Simulated assay, not measured.
Amino acid sequence: MVEEKKAEPSLRERKKRATRQRISNVATALFVERGFDEVTVAEVARAADVSAMTVFNYFPRKEDLFLDRIPEAVETFTEAVRHRGPAESPFTALRTLALQLLDEQHPLGGLHDDFTHFWQIVIDSPALSARAREAVEEVEEALARTFAETAPELPDPHLAAALTVAAYRSVYVTTARRLLAGERATAVADEYRARMEAAFDALEGVFGTA
């Protein structure tokens, strides 16, 4: 696997990303203040000083205003596989990414005391909970395509993707539940890391890529 250098985004793309982030930030503030189900897209548009059509251009569904990292999750995990080193297995690349997200306290890593309020809002909204489950499926499908394209040594890329996502989700959700129950991130960090390492050890063992 040859590592490719990613092109820097254009000024137009940077402006679009900034607008998207601003709309999401405004929406999130409203959802936190009043509850997801109590805020309309029209209200988000007015608060962000854009049209409702502009909101939908960036976020096809209201749920995506709050779960705005779904595209980032798909890109982050697939790009880790696609741009891995020549001697790296897909699982080694994803392990490195998972531990990097943990060390950076990135939202996709799931280990920070401040994330609990976000998770509670998702839990309290059936619409958000359903969209979160769909997001997991989107990551799985994208990984399966990327495995098929870049890892011909894997006999079943769809199974590999399903097991990878299930393993990652298990570690993430278990940790999230502990934080929601009142434990501090620092108290569970070592176990989180150990469980993530064990998950990828198991994946590499199953698929013979260790």
Rank of each mutant, 00 (worst) to 15 (best):
V2I: 13
E3K: 11
E4T: 14
K6R: 15
K6A: 15
A7M: 12
A7F: 03
S10V: 11
L11C: 09
R12K: 15
E13H: 06
R20P: 04
S24I: 06
V26C: 03
V26R: 00
A27V: 08
T28W: 07
L30Y: 00
V32Y: 09
V32Q: 10
E33C: 12
G35R: 07
D37Y: 06
V39I: 15
T40P: 04
V41P: 02
S51G: 06
A52I: 11
M53Y: 05
M53W: 07
T54A: 10
V55P: 00
P60W: 11
P60K: 07
R61C: 07
K62S: 02
E63K: 05
D64I: 05
L67G: 05
L67K: 03
D68K: 09
R69N: 10
I70F: 10
A73P: 08
V74H: 04
V74I: 14
T76K: 07
T76W: 02
E79G: 04
E79A: 13
A80L: 03
R84G: 06
G85M: 05
G85L: 09
E88L: 02
A93M: 06
R95S: 09
T96P: 00
L97N: 01
A98P: 01
Q100F: 05
D103H: 02
D103S: 06
E104A: 13
E104K: 12
P107G: 06
L108P: 01
L108V: 00
G109Q: 01
G109S: 03
G110I: 00
D114T: 01
D114S: 14
T116A: 09
W119S: 12
V122G: 01
V122K: 02
I123F: 12
L128F: 05
L128I: 08
S129A: 11
S129P: 00
S129W: 10
A130G: 09
A135K: 07
A135G: 14
V136W: 11
E137K: 11
V139F: 02
V139G: 04
E140I: 06
E141T: 14
E141Y: 09
A142K: 01
L143Q: 00
L143R: 00
A148F: 03
A148E: 10
E149H: 02
E149Q: 13
T150M: 04
T150P: 01
T150C: 10
A151T: 09
L154Q: 04
P155L: 03
P155W: 05
H158V: 14
H158P: 00
H158C: 04
A160C: 08
A161Q: 01
A161R: 01
A162Q: 08
T164M: 02
A166S: 12
A166H: 03
Y172E: 09
T174H: 10
A176G: 14
R177K: 10
R178I: 06
R178G: 10
L179T: 00
L179F: 09
L180M: 15
L180Y: 07
A181Q: 13
G182T: 11
E183K: 14
A185F: 00
V188F: 07
A189P: 05
A189S: 14
D190V: 11
R193V: 12
E197W: 08
E197N: 13
A199N: 09
D201I: 07
D201W: 12
L203G: 03
A210K: 12
A210S: 10
